[in-house]
Amino acid sequence: MTASLSLQRLSWEQRRKLTGILFVLPTVLFVSVFFIIPLLMTFTMSFFDWPLFGDHTFIGLDNYTSLTTDRQFLKSIEFTARYTLLVTPPIFILGFILASLVRHSIPGIGIFRTIFFMPVVIGLGVSSLLWVWLLNDQVGIINKIMLDLGIVEKAQLFMARPDSAMAVIIVSVVWKTVGFTMILLLAGLQAIPDELYESAEVDGAGYFHKLRFITLPLMRRTIALALILSVIGSVLSFDQFYIMTGGGPRNSTISVVYWIFNNSFTYFKMGYGAAMSIVLLVILVLLSAVQFYLLRDNT
């Protein structure tokens, strides 16, 4: 029995369904192989003492109970939350300002859009490394400029203090990601018909009235999307800390993912790392749910 023969026997309705299945199959396979199966494996691993070498043993909920007394894990959650709270507003506000600036299609605007978006294209690892050298006390251009302008008297060691390390990481991440938020918000801004603004102006509305009563309400969905993506990115942050501070000074900049990485690939406690990943996943789902709820579209 050949395939063509069996296909002919299918009814139109059945064929339609089959076509549909074939269309989604690649995605289903992709998601299964790269998301669902690893997720299930991680979930399973979290109940095991799973060293890199040797056998793994089932230990029930021990990994999860250990988490409650892991000082560094709790410190990392607190640090990651603080980082997310500090880095999200600048990305957002700056993204919105940039989107407003490049909103209208005037000649040459593409150049600015490209410039603002360019850092998004490079990897976070690469940009972090770039900033490490920009900020270097011996050869970094930032110290050179500050010295030449007389802002500082001697080269600054930005990574030597927790607050300055956090500050420069935020600057580097805003530089790296603001273009992405800008593009998302730009799409939202451009979807608002000009007529609305025009009629509001006729009614005597100023800039802030238009922002408050037209722009922000109509951009609710876009803002929700941009905010959720930005918050998820911040909660999952790792590269910038791993590369720029190495978790220092004095272990003050270890994010949750950094601590998961350390446990899994430095201490080789794979099961424990898996348990932390599951907890982080739950936190992220809850956080996203709250944001969706708060920014839900009432219409």
């Binding site: 272990n251 270890i254 430095t266």
Partner: peptide, 20 residues
């Protein structure tokens, strides 16, 4: 057997002791 965790880890107790 845990050399890495003790001495080599950038966030481990050896380096922290030196720095503090």
């Amino acid at each position: 057997l845990v050399y890495n965790d003790l001495f080599n880890d950038a966030n481990g107790p050896w380096l922290l002791m030196l720095q503090v």
